[in-house]
């Protein structure tokens, strides 16, 4: 989903940057509030960032005979809410753009919009919805992570289609073409990401029930009530 440096026309690059900026700024404020209110959560914040760091460096083969990488944003979105995940994702993308020549500074806005904004919000939305419908936590985590991943690549396809519409079939045709490159490849990877996120969440619930309960992740997800430590063994 990394649109390479210089591969969006200046107008598009600027527009996506402008679109992404408020989310990241708002996320920075949320991050500062979070750390002030609960300094203990800093370590878990680092872990959520680290998860994205690992997963977005992991290029995996897919059934289409090409490779792609997961995004790892679903976990952070569930733990800390999407605004904070936007900041973490933006930092990872910046690092990759500057040091790895993966993505770019001119496309940082567009890449942030797909991976660090839409992905986390879709993931969090799916999680909240499934929990409200009474689904188990692990099922909700799986679909949240998988769809955060997949939606990121769908957004990338649309971004490229808007910038490079097909001469015959227009934006829609181009979106389908880019979608067949990005989104289809991504399906098995999204499932992998879902499984890995469930695995990490299980370990987190087991090792740090206190932190997760303070964040409202375990316990009643709708009202965010804090579960007593004894009620955590599923």
């Amino acid at each position: 989903m990394h649109i390479a440096e210089g591969y969006l026309p200046p107008l598009h690059a600027a527009a996506w940057t402008v679109a992404a900026a408020p989310f990241v700024v708002h996320g920075c404020r949320a991050l500062v509030r979070q750390v002030r209110a609960d300094p203990e959560s800093k370590l878990l914040l680092g872990a959520a960032g680290a998860f994205t760091f690992v997963l977005s460096a992991l290029k995996l083969p897919s059934v289409t005979g090409s490779c792609s990488h997961p995004t790892g944003t679903g976990l952070g979105a569930i733990l800390f809410k999407p605004p904070i995940m936007s900041v973490l994702g933006c930092i990872v993308l910046f690092f990759q753009a500057v040091i790895l020549a993966h993505g770019g500074l001119t496309t940082l806005g567009a890449n942030t919009f797909s991976m660090a904004i839409v992905g986390p919000w879709i993931g969090y939305g799916v999680y909240a919805l499934l929990r409200k419908l009474g689904s188990g936590q692990e099922v909700a985590v799986f679909f949240a992570a998988a769809l955060a991943d997949l939606s990121t690549y769908c957004v990338t396809s649309v971004q490229l289609a808007l910038a490079f519409p097909d001469t015959d079939s227009g934006v829609l045709g181009a979106a389908l073409k880019f979608g067949s490159i990005f989104a289809v490849t991504q399906i098995p990877l999204a499932i992998s990401e879902g499984l890995l996120t469930v695995l990490v969440m299980r370990l987190l619930i087991k090792t740090s029930p206190g932190e997760l309960s303070r964040l409202g992740v375990v316990g009643d997800p709708v009202r965010g009530t804090r579960a007593p430590a004894a009620g955590l063994g599923r």
Binding site: M1, H2, I3, A4, Y7, K59, L60, P61, S62, V63, T64, G65, S66, C67, S68, H102, T156, L160, K177, F178, I181, F182, T185, Q186, P188, L189, I191, S192, L195
Partner: peptide
């Protein structure tokens, strides 16, 4: 999920980012 494509699919396994760029 990682092994199945490597074993059963023949392809170049190029990065999808690069394929998008080529497109």
């Amino acid at each position: 999920l990682v092994a199945v494509p490597l074993i059963f699919v023949s392809g170049e396994f190029a990065g999808s980012d690069d394929q998008g760029q080529a497109q």
